[in-house]
C-alpha cells in the first residue's frame, strides 16, 4: 500500500550539482556543508545520518538539555518525518538560513516554527507555551502577570483582525515591521562555509 522508498533516507553527499541548483549554495559550498554534516552525523552513531540526539549534541554540546525549540527545528528539517536527517534534508533546510536566501522563505520557515500545532495560525496559548519554554530554558523568571502582559501587547500589535490568531499574513506584516524577528533564520556562518570546512577540497567531485 505504501511507497517505503519515500521514507528511506539516502546516505552520502548525493549529487552536489543538483543540490546547488535547487538551493542558494554553490557546488563547493554544498561540499563544504557535507563536511559539517559528516562531523555532526558521526557524533553518536556513524551512519551518515543525523538523529535527534546528534542534532542536540551539536547545538548544545550536551544531549542532556531538553529544548522545545531544538525539537521544533529538527522536526522542520525532517521533511520525510522519519526521525533522522539525510544530507539532502539538512542542506535544503540550511539553505533557508543563508543570508542570500529569499526573505519569503525565511518568513515561511519562522511561521512554521512557531505554529506548534500545525493549524495554519499561531494562537495565544502557543505563544505562552513558547515564552514559558524560553524563560525556563534560559533560567529566567518572570511572573505570570508579566508574561500575560507581554502576550497581550504582542497580540494587540499582531492580531489586526482581533480573532485571537496570528495567521501567515499577519505574521508577514509583523516581521516586516520587526526584521529582528527573522534574525535567527539567518546564519552568517553559511557565507564562509568553504573557509570553515576547507577539507572539502580533498573530497571534491568537481574540477576547478
Amino acid at each position: 500500500c505504501c511507497d517505503f522508498d519515500l521514507y528511506k533516507e539516502s546516505r552520502g553527499l548525493g549529487d552536489p550539482e543538483i543540490l546547488a541548483r535547487e538551493t542558494v549554495f554553490s557546488v563547493s559550498e554544498v561540499e563544504a556543508l557535507y563536511e559539517l554534516f559528516k562531523k555532526i552525523s558521526s557524533a553518536v552513531i556513524d551512519d551518515g545520518l543525523i538523529n535527534k540526539e546528534e542534532f542536540q549534541l551539536a547545538l548544545f554540546k550536551t544531549n542532556k538539555k531538553e529544548s522545545l525549540f531544538a525539537d521544533r527545528v529538527f522536526d522542520l528539517f525532517d521533511t520525510k518525518h522519519n526521525g533522522i536527517l539525510g544530507f539532502e534534508e539538512f542542506a535544503r533546510a540550511l539553505s533557508v538560513f543563508h543570508p542570500n536566501a529569499p526573505v519569503d522563505d525565511k518568513i515561511e520557515f519562522s511561521f512554521q516554527l512557531y505554529d506548534l500545532k500545525h493549524q495554519g495560525f499561531i494562537e495565544r496559548q502557543e505563544v505562552k507555551q513558547m515564552v514559558v519554554a524560553t524563560l525556563a530554558e534560559s533560567g529566567m523568571n518572570l511572573s505570570d502577570d508579566v508574561i500575560e502582559s507581554i502576550i497581550d501587547k504582542t497580540f494587540e500589535e499582531a492580531d489586526t483582525k482581533h480573532d485571537g490568531k496570528i495567521d501567515k499574513e499577519k505574521w508577514r506584516i509583523l516581521v516586516l515591521r520587526h526584521p529582528s524577528l527573522l534574525k535567527n533564520v539567518t546564519l552568517q556562518y553559511l557565507k564562509d562555509i568553504t573557509t570553515t570546512f576547507p577539507s572539502f577540497v580533498f573530497h571534491s567531485q568537481v574540477a576547478d
Binding site: L68, I150, K153, K183
Partner: peptide, 25 residues
C-alpha cells in the same frame, strides 16, 4: 524592560533557535 518586549523577540532569544553553535568546532 520586559513588559514592552514583543513575545516573539523574547522567544527568538532561545538557545534552541540559535543554530550558529552547529558551526562551532
Amino acid at each position: 524592560k520586559p513588559v514592552t518586549m514583543n513575545a516573539f523577540e523574547l522567544i527568538s532569544t532561545s538557545q534552541g533557535l540559535n543554530l550558529s553553535s552547529l558551526f562551532e568546532k
